[in-house]
Design a protein around this nucleic acid. Structure first.
Lengths: 206, 206
DNA sequence: GAGGTTCTTGGACAGTCGTCAAGAAATTCT
DNA sequence: AGAATTTCTTGACGACTGTCCAAGAACCTC
């Protein structure tokens, strides 16, 4: 029976193989979620985006909840790594503002499906308590990234931030979300407005 | 056949009765959506929140898409009416800032399920094109409301807004969304932080 | 290569979904 | 009042869902 018990199996000898397969399946699930949204993602749809049949999902995950939770956590680590890599080694304030705006616009354009998945999952967390912890941790990581940019910018112009970390993140998050929606609606000005808005917010929040 | 054709029926004589019932069913649907979220709302669940059985939904709506679309439009009119009623007849800047923060905090606390439905539907609109138009109109109405507050505040302190209407709305929307999530997670500081953040943003954006 | 373990498949299950149609019930009209 | 029409209920349908399982393929060790 242990051979079909994902939890018991997870801690065993060739844990690498087992965990690798979990990651592989979770990536297929994330790809499906980003394409269809949470409401329309089924296990068979996930399996069809992978190299396996739908039955294998219950060999590596106890049930759908564990799979989705694992996906959210995996998504979280990817986000944190990504955002921790955002370099803020600019030496001039306006260069930093430009780089920040360009960076946000670049990831919005290239990773739009991933970002809309993030907002979808965050909305789900308002209905499903089981998602809240992971979502809150991702949010905290994003808030730290924004705060690093804001404080660095402030110091480059010889000032201090004039708002809390939470307020700064909320403002940038709202800006990014609006830009994402407009970009998905094929508004050609969405990216430029995001760049301009980033600059405007940076100037205003310090 | 016209008796079972919702579209053909809608334009007939006692159109009031027919339209009233559509509104009644749509309200039951909105109540269900606010409670369960979009992903878990089924027609039978909606009917159980009304005084009718599930079959009647297809008498008043062609299919589920038309029902949900009708709900979004109805939700929109309620929002626009509500936000157009937000009085900005304060005569002092700090009184307006306080009223705005109190107003946002009050509706967040009393209508939290409705607000999380809004963010849920807005996320869905990033996946389902059919929602985008209505969602964009609600967003535009919200943006106008925020802009009225910002401009009124600016004029009360003898200045002009220092950002675009879109940027101001994005910032306040992000602030409100963060506060809503924290409030739903039973963070006792969520409402106070929303009030403080509102004041902070008003001061910063002009 | 044989035997045992691990992995994967594909089908079956019980339940739920949106949809529809037949007829009962309620209402309106004459 | 009865007839006609509108409104609503009930039960069914095919499709899809998450879950589970028997069977076999693939892999490894001896």
């Amino acid at each position: 029976m242990t051979s079909t018990d994902a939890v018991g199996r997870a801690g065993r000898r060739p844990a690498d193989k087992f965990e690798d397969r979990r990651r592989q399946l979770a990536d297929a699930a994330l790809q499906t979620l980003a394409a269809l949204g949470y409401a329309r993602t089924s296990l068979r749809e996930i399996a069809s985006h992978s190299d396996f049949s739908h039955g294998v999902l219950h060999y590596y995950f106890r049930d759908k909840v564990e799979l989705i939770t694992y996906c959210v956590q995996r998504f979280k680590t990817q986000c944190i790594e990504r955002y921790d890599a955002v370099a803020t080694h600019a030496t001039a304030a306006d260069a930093l503002a430009r780089d920040a705006g360009d960076g946000l616009a670049a990831t919005l354009e290239s990773d739009a499906p991933m970002h809309r998945l993030w907002y979808d999952l965050r909305s789900q967390s308002m209905f499903e308590e089981s998602f809240r912890l992971d979502v809150a941790e991702i949010d905290a990581g994003l808030e730290r990234m924004i705060w690093r940019i804001v404080t660095t910018y402030a110091h480059l112009v010889g000032r201090e931030p004039a708002c809390t970390s939470a307020t700064a993140y909320a403002a940038f998050d709202g800006l990014f979300q609006q830009a994402l929606m407009r970009h998905l609606a094929r508004d050609p000005a969405a990216l430029d407005d995001l760049r301009a808005g980033t600059r405007s917010l940076l100037e205003r929040l310090i």
